[in-house]
């Protein structure tokens, strides 16, 4: 993934661009591989998509009509060719289940998942790193022990148990937070700009929608973030402690720098590489946890859509979900790799 050089100057711009182009090439290759594997898999698994789409009581000629309509009667390689041709135009085909363009369904379900995932990512990173730093500074104090316990619970608790506990406490007992959906059904959704309710309501100054959206996303995001927050805070603690014991930190202190400057300007920057790595991996694991969280909190996301697509063999929807998730995953990986260079200029991309 990365190779460390010995110099201390910034990487030459050309090398950086070359690296980026190469990585984008890899990404495209990975996604193409993903289309091929998923396409073949969805076609060879048992079950007849045309039969499912035509309906349980459909006559054989109706099934054949559906088969022709979706091009499922053509040889596999021609089907794949047509699929790829349409895909390059941004067309994922029509859903065999809802009979709508998959893009339309994807837009409806993917953005809520992304909003939830990013909010959870934001929470676990910007809360996990400071908590880890606090643990490192106050190591072996009550605070450190408390945060260790807090992290241990976060790592050990299955996400669906934690979600149910939050639901019982904060919805049933205290009634502080609502459950179900992204916004109160009595409040109109904010004007569509990005599809992210939090951003759209903020940008348009729709404060009622913003408050309601925050209110609704709090519990699912907290559930999703907790496990990753625990991991990131522990990793930050370990990484910061390791860096704090290095000679250059000693030198910085000897120079008379304040403890704050030593920590934030010198130690943290060097401690960030493993934290970024673990953050990238945690975002990947969030994608796995999001399905359960969506079910518990009735969050209208990609998880339930993907589950339905698989159970009814909606081949076009399965392809679209796999590709979108794959794109997201490779995108996050690429971003993390690029951030290495931002955080640590010694890193060279070759």
């Amino acid at each position: 993934m990365r190779e460390e050089g010995e110099g201390i100057q910034s990487p030459p711009l050309l090398t950086m661009w070359a690296y980026l182009v190469r990585r984008l090439g890899y990404t495209i290759f990975t996604l193409w591989g993903l289309t091929l594997i998923t396409f073949v898999l969805t076609r060879v698994v048992p079950g007849d998509p045309a039969r499912v789409a035509a309906g349980p009581q459909a006559r054989q000629e109706q099934v054949e009509q559906v088969r022709r309509m979706y091009g499922l009667d053509k040889p596999l390689w021609i089907q794949y060719g047509i699929y790829m041709q349409n895909l390059l135009r941004g067309d994922f085909g029509k859903s065999l289940w809802s009979k709508r363009p998959v893009v339309e369904d994807l837009r409806a379900y993917f953005i809520p998942t992304l909003e939830l995932g990013l909010t959870a990512g934001f929470v676990f990173f910007f809360l996990g790193v400071p908590l880890g730093i606090l643990s490192a500074i106050y190591r072996n104090t009550f605070l450190d022990h408390f945060l260790r316990l807090f992290s241990l619970i976060g790592v050990s608790f299955p996400v669906f148990i934690f979600g149910l506990v939050l639901l019982l406490v904060f919805y049933k007992l205290l009634g502080w937070f609502p459950v179900g959906g992204r916004i109160d059904p009595f409040i109109s959704a904010p004007k569509h700009l990005t599809g992210f309710y939090l951003i759209d309501s903020f940008v348009t100054g729709n404060w009622r929608a913003l408050v309601s959206s925050l209110h609704h996303i709090f519990l699912p995001a907290a559930t999703l973030a907790y496990g990753s927050l625990a991991v990131v805070s522990r990793m930050t603690r370990a990484s910061v402690l390791e860096v704090l014991s290095l000679d250059y930190v000693c030198t910085a202190r000897a120079k008379g720098l304040s403890e704050r400057a030593v920590l934030l300007k010198h130690a943290l920057r060097n401690a960030m590489i493993p934290i970024l790595t673990i953050t990238g991996l945690q975002i990947g694991s969030l994608l796995g946890g999001v399905l359960l969280v969506e079910i518990i909190f009735s969050w209208p996301g990609l998880g339930t859509y993907a589950y339905t697509a698989v159970t009814v063999l909606d081949v076009n929807a399965i392809m679209a979900v796999t590709l979108t998730t794959g794109l997201l995953y490779t995108g996050v990986n690429l971003l993390v790799d690029l951030l290495y260079a931002v955080v640590d200029p010694r890193i060279r991309y070759q």
């Binding site: 149910l164 639901l167 019982l168 919805y171 049933k172 009634g175 609502p178 459950v179 179900g180 959906g181 059904p185 969506e294 079910i295 518990i296 909190f297 009735s298 209208p300 339930t304």
Partner: peptide, 20 residues
């Protein structure tokens, strides 16, 4: 009339109990 899609049956029960 609002038809809310609540996937988890246990959550439906909580919503009903609280009158939501």
């Amino acid at each position: 009339v609002i038809i809310r899609y609540i996937t988890e049956p246990a959550v439906q029960r909580l919503l009903l109990e609280r009158g939501d």
